[in-house]
Nucleic acid binder design. Structure first.
Lengths: 220, 220
DNA sequence: TAACCAAGGTGACAACGTCATCTGAAACCC
DNA sequence: GGGTTTCAGATGACGTTGTCACCTTGGTTA
């Protein structure tokens, strides 16, 4: 299966890959708190301190996992955007449903997509950390990479919005559509859509949301 | 200021109150991870183990804080609902803006409102814990109290929805409005409304959302 | 071949949640 | 009113965790 490791760079890249996979697996199983560097190292076949050779710490590792999550969603939306058999409304419904489906399949990872930090309350000093890490090369800043990945998602998503509501309304209704879908996904995950007073389905809500916004686009 | 403590019940109630206040304060400062039982106890003037006399553990304490958060929002929405000078649209706008305002003032507490557990990944065994705690009286189950508080919020919110879109559409559009507002609040907190492609304001988004839903209510 | 360097291993430390145990005073009973 | 009970609270201890300092080792390179 795995090719024979010869060079040190290959070995290091394989370890980094294994660390990311192990972290993602643990994240799916029990959330950010279940991702312990000791267990990540064990599953990757290395020791507990090895992750510090590839990431600055736990937050950095989790941020890298989140970055790959954004990349995957961006790929899904890209496939929808470039599918010429779909109308703008269909593309939009597909994109929002893909987001919600992502939340169902990997709820813990999904929730981290919309959190600012890895998972820690270190609001202060974040700016300094970014500057410090940027001195080691722009590619080594996990937060910058994460923002770039989220930006790529927007790059795939916004053209669909424009097709739906026109250039002038893109930013406003793009935010409304994305926030709506995210709110629907988040409330479904938290169980708030299963209560008596709000019992409905996420897919129906997305349909209603897209239809309402599309109507605005027509009358604009 | 504080009355003289005589009975043991009064003293215990005051301690419990102090623990909740200290926990809420630490939560605002640095999120759930910053709420350490040691610091909570210190700020409440008791030792590190004292919280276990009033809550089953950290999750229980945080759940109680979240419960009080739902109570406060429910109070705000109640004031709006019973204000006869406001139209249904105005009440709805006010309610959704109150939710977003809550997110701005106490972001960490707000985010916990829509999380299932206290903050831990202990999905398994939650049912057993509930049964075990319920044996000690229904009032001692922090999760049940939290659900009751969230239900009270819905009880205040849903009549406004009915005024807006009619009885038949209440559950569907109620979920859409609440999910939309929550998504807007969450994306604002995570900084996703400040990016170039989605730059807009939360208040404008709420206005658009309520207007769109209100139009549906008229044509129904 | 010898110096070098980074990936990885290991010991240690502080902080944390949690439990078992102890203490003292309020509450209760006769 | 004296003895007993009960319970809020204090304290010691344990296992786990993130993180750092230091060490080892085997590719890499001059």
């Amino acid at each position: 299966m795995m090719g024979v490791m010869v060079t040190r760079a290959e070995s290091a890249a394989a370890t980094r890959r294994a660390l990311l996979d192990a972290a993602a697996e643990l994240l799916d199983l029990g959330g950010p708190e279940a991702v312990t560097l000791r267990e990540v190292g064990a599953r990757a076949g290395v020791s507990r301190g090895a992750p510090y050779r590839h990431f600055t710490g736990k937050d950095s590792l989790l941020t890298a996992v989140v970055t790959e999550g954004w990349e995957r969603i961006a790929d899904q939306v890209h496939a929808l955007r470039t599918d010429e058999a779909l109308s703008a409304s269909e593309k939009m419904r597909g994109a929002l449903r893909a987001l919600i489906g992502f939340g169902r399949e990997q709820p813990h990872l999904y929730l981290m997509l919309f959190r600012r930090r890895g998972h820690r309350p270190e609001e202060l000093g974040e700016g300094l950390d970014r500057v410090r890490r940027q001195l080691c090369g722009p590619e080594s800043d996990p937060i910058a990479e994460r923002m770039r990945a989220a930006g790529r998602f927007q790059g795939e998503f916004l053209p669909i919005v424009t097709d739906l509501v026109g250039e002038r309304n893109t930013r406003h209704y793009g935010a409304l559509l994305l926030a709506g879908a995210h709110g629907i996904a988040d409330m479904e995950l938290s169980g708030h859509l299963s209560t008596e007073g709000l019992r409905t389905t996420a897919d129906d809500l997305v349909d209603t949301l897209v239809r309402m916004v599309a109507d605005v686009g027509e009358n604009a």
